[in-house]
Design a protein around this nucleic acid. Structure first.
Length: 277
DNA sequence: GTGCTTGTTGGCCA
DNA sequence: GTGGCCAACAAGCA
């Protein structure tokens, strides 16, 4: 599930529950693959008694900051979720990390275990965090940057290129399809074949979809929607892409699903043409 | 049983 | 060295 906006949703969920609170108990599934490359005993010792002082989401990742220079990084992989449960919560089978405060149990759960928890100690955030590519909504994400990236990846389908985190941090399968649908670009088009106007449109829709997804999924300011997706308008491709017999919300034609760039891809044949007329 | 799944990585090959 | 493709990872669901 988790792409850019979902990561922000889950970050906020922990943040609103735990800011300023002290962690009293740390529970872990020590042998979970989730902790690969991370010393679980070190993490437990450092977080027990630490105060939650801040957090940030970038791309599909989150960074939680605790006093005393302790940093907890979370990537939700394919099936990860963060929840805030009552303090007496009993960890379930797929709950790999539970941080308990006086008011809540912060739960990281992930059945498929493609997610990842990392720990860092130091005055500055860790390099695996700072090396994440410039955000799509930042000033550094320019149309020229995208144009030159598309030239470098000229022989790859544009759908596959949009999934490259080194340039499109936070874009996942559904957001990539949503962007291409709005930009009216067929997902199988080779990146190098896009016109200047199409590249510009792609860049603009990248930013627009990120902004809209963040606002509707994660909410603005301190507001957090009751659940993911509840505010997503029916006019987005999102709701129709998996449905059997799903129709394009703009053209009403039947949507097509096919594997492109190694991922199931959905598009509207009426809007997104492989060859120009 | 089969065939999917909103992600990432490493190995292979041109 | 660079870029593109694909299997593998693991569990649940229809």
């Amino acid at each position: 599930m988790p792409e850019l906006a979902e990561a922000e949703f889950f970050r906020k969920r922990w943040h609103l529950a735990a800011r300023g609170q002290k962690i009293t108990v740390v529970q872990t599934h020590d042998r979970a693959k989730i902790f690969r490359g991370t010393g679980v005993p070190v993490l437990r010792r450092a977080l027990t008694g630490a105060r939650f002082v801040g957090s940030e989401a970038r791309a599909k990742q989150m960074l939680f900051r605790f006093n005393g220079g302790a940093w907890l990084g979370v990537h939700l992989g394919m099936s990860g979720e963060l929840r805030a449960e009552p303090p007496g919560y009993t960890p379930q089978k797929h709950d790999h990390l539970v941080l308990t405060t006086k008011r809540h149990a912060l739960v990281f759960t992930d059945p498929r275990m493609f997610g990842r928890v990392q720990f860092h100690r130091g005055a500055e955030p860790p390099s695996w965090w700072t090396k994440i590519a410039p955000a799509i909504l930042s000033d550094a994400f320019t149309a020229e940057l995208i144009a030159s990236f598309l030239r470098r990846r000229a022989r790859a389908p544009i759908k596959a290129v949009l999934l490259m985190q080194e340039r499109f941090p936070g874009i996942g399968n559904w957001m990539a399809d949503e962007i291409l649908w709005r930009a009216a670009i067929h997902p199988a088009r080779l990146a190098g074949s896009l016109s200047v106007a199409e590249t510009q449109k792609l860049w603009r829709e990248c930013r627009r979809v990120c902004r809209l997804a963040l606002d509707t999924i994660a909410g603005r300011g301190d507001h957090l929607p009751p659940d993911l997706n509840v505010n997503i308008p029916r006019t987005w491709l999102f709701w129709h892409r998996w449905a059997e017999g799903g129709r394009c919300p703009k053209s009403c034609c039947l949507l097509v699903r096919e594997e492109i760039g190694g991922r199931t891809t959905c598009w509207s044949p009426a809007r997104q043409k492989l060859t120009l007329p």
